[in-house]
Design a protein around this nucleic acid. Sequence first.
RNA 1: GGUCCGAUGGCGGAGUGGUGACGUAACGGACUGCAAAUCCGUGCACCCGGGUUCGAUUCCCGGUCGGACCUCCA
Length: 436
Amino acid sequence: MTDLRLYNTLTRSKQVFVPAEPARVTMYVCGPTVYGRAHIGNARPAVVFDVLRRVLRHRYGAGAVVYARNITDIDDKIITAADAEGVPIDTITQRFEDHYLADMGALGVEPPDHAPHATAYVAQMVAMIDELVARGVAYAAEGHVLFDVAAFPDYGKLSGRRLDEMIAGARVEVAPYKKSPADFVLWKPSWPEQPGWDSPWGRGRPGWHIECSAMIREVLGETIDIHGGGLDLIFPHHENEAAQSACAHGGAPLARVWMHNGFLSMGADKMSKSLGNVALIDELLAAGWSGEVLRLALLSAHYRQPLEWSDALLTQTKATLDRWQGFLRRSDVAAGEVPERVIAALSDDLNTPDAVAAIARLSRLDDVAGMRAAMGLLGLLEPEGEGDAAIDAAVAARVAARARKDFAESDRIRDGLAAQGVVLEDSPSGTTWRRV
RNA sequence: GGUCCGAUGGCGGAGUGGUGACGUAACGGACUGCAAAUCCGUGCACCCGGGUUCGAUUCCCGGUCGGACCUCCA
């Protein structure tokens, strides 16, 4: 099998991936902050890293991959949303976590092995912050605990920035209790009416970055193989995670490979919650696009490239997928080995467009077993369609009409079914139907 | 202002120092009662200007345009 090569943000290059322990490959992806519905852009990392997980399992064995994706269930935006409705925060977080899991499930994203919730790991966060203070790289000030970026020489290495440049940018929050404007919050105080936990620094709540560091160490270990997320997380989120974890670990890095997916755009701008130009997943599904179409559309571009999301993209993707699924439907040959050509494409930094091209070729080669296996690997097999007695009866009536050359009746039945979104396909071996 | 990325056919989108993926759309044909599906065939591109080279879409430099990050954001 060809080497698996992955682009590492840390080194800005593709590198052959070698896990620390092939029997236990660890990956962590930053999951959602659950305070609103997920849009299709939020699904890109979930889908991309779901594919990576499948590729890793194929290579190292199903039991050899440990995948964690967190749920951020304490955050100021959540508090704001809860206040707006006058409900406790867990009403909000539970609701949107359920939505998130349903949306991802529709896109064929398998649940991760671990889905740690931030609120369940506050003790570990407090412990890690305590260690950082003890090591002299963090300091308490006015109820806050801050990470002292000057104490970590490699700060800025992941995002390729220099500290002085960041400070010169002057867009970081300048609070009087910070030693340096670039210092970031590990712990912040809560007002009595805000959610909070007791800590050595008073009642408060964790900063955003510390949760991933603490949960990764608890769930996966100190240095993991792969850490992923959207490219906007490189700075400050991942830079800060990397800094605090390395310091807490006595120097051992947080992750060996950092991977970041590019963004979806809508028209001229990136799709963004704050810009409001988003396509929500549940709305796309309600509009009739199947989860497989949405998934294939997300995989139609390389994960690091931008992808313009549009109805035209979905229309084209659906046509492609219909053709593939039709090809499989006409044969009951079971899945075989995933063709090497497909593995090679995916092994080249998850080149899904090339894998898609390879799969398209399989239908030309009449390789049903390979096609089924490849589509299964990418998570694109459609669920078993349920039967429908009424449609079957209509189809039977039309077959009878055609047999007696009553084409007016035959066409009337076909048009009626078409109006219900059911398309008929006649072949020498009989008539089949499918929904469009 | 700083850092980084991109520019390929009607559209989406890989890739490559020389024979120009793949999908979708278009056109022609086969098949079909007519369709649908399928199959066969055809046409269609590498931002601009230099440089390196026998040869550049691919490498280098410059430019133009577009985008991202530097602040919540996948």
